[in-house]
Computed example of a mutant assay.
Amino acid sequence: MSLPEIREAQASPDVAAIYAALRSGVGVAQVNLIWRHAAALPEVLDWLWAQAAPALASGAAAGARDRIAARVAVPALAPIAAPPGVADLIETYNRGNLTNLAVLTAIRLRAAGAAPAAPGAAAPVGAMLPVPPPLPKLADLPPEAATLVRGLAAKHRLSDASVVPSLYLHLTHWPEMLALLDPVLSPDGVAAGRDGAVAVAAAEAPGLIAALGPAPAPPAALDGFVATLALFTREVIPGMVPIGLALRRAVAMGR
């Protein structure tokens, strides 16, 4: 997916400060693409962060993250004896995807008129996870790895077929992990898991809306961003949540 973005190394001091607070609030050492894209649109990152920051700081987002993880149906994978570093990478994506799904769904639904409800219990964010290895680019991958990544991405049947979930790219550091996933995942199974994660996040949203900060005045670029936010919270992120949780379980069983 070709979205304008501001990468962490290119961030201005103001954007870098939000990125640092976001990493701390989520507990992962990377910033998700949807946030980097928001930074490239005038005033959109400020609009997003003003709402998300209190929910992250209070532990409300972490509580929602944990409840979503507990309620999502997870596909069955055989135990995996994962190479060193894989478990930390999977946990980075689980924590990031679950937190972003919770917070960004709440922001999107509030912008569409959803009302707050009684907040759920807060939870600790958790210790910062290790910095993941560099994220490979699809164009730079060996042909065999690129074919595996494209095949897995196609099983998501995303409305924008150019989207490649970042976890698949990151796992090309360990291509044997992708080879294990490929025969297990099916388009119908991925769709069912995604729809279940969307529903669980939507059910959690009213309580999390109560923990959001006030929304600033809508910036001029917001309409276009909301469409991308819907793509990420209805398709891209929730499609990866059950897969990441299944990998977490399989790696834990394989230790």
Rank of each mutant, 00 (worst) to 15 (best):
V131T: 15
A139D: 15
L141D: 09
L135T: 15
W174K: 02
L138H: 05
A122S: 14
A153I: 10
G151C: 09
L152I: 04
M128V: 08
P119Y: 03
P142C: 09
D182L: 15
A145Y: 09
T105G: 05
W174L: 03
S166R: 08
T172K: 06
H170E: 15
L98W: 06
A123D: 03
N100E: 14
L77G: 01
L101A: 03
D88L: 07
M177D: 00
V164R: 01
D140W: 00
A111R: 14
A146Q: 11
V131W: 10
V131P: 07
V86L: 08
L181K: 07
G96T: 11
L169G: 08
G189K: 07
E144F: 13
L138I: 12
D182I: 06
L167M: 14
P84V: 05
L167T: 02
P116Y: 07
S186T: 15
G113V: 00
T147M: 13
S162K: 12
T147W: 08
M128R: 15
L148C: 06
E176T: 12
T92F: 12
H173K: 04
G113N: 04
P175H: 07
R157I: 00
R108Y: 06
T172F: 10
E91V: 04
L167S: 02
A102Q: 10
T99V: 08
A139T: 10
R110I: 08
N100D: 15
A154V: 08
L98R: 06
L109Y: 00
G120A: 12
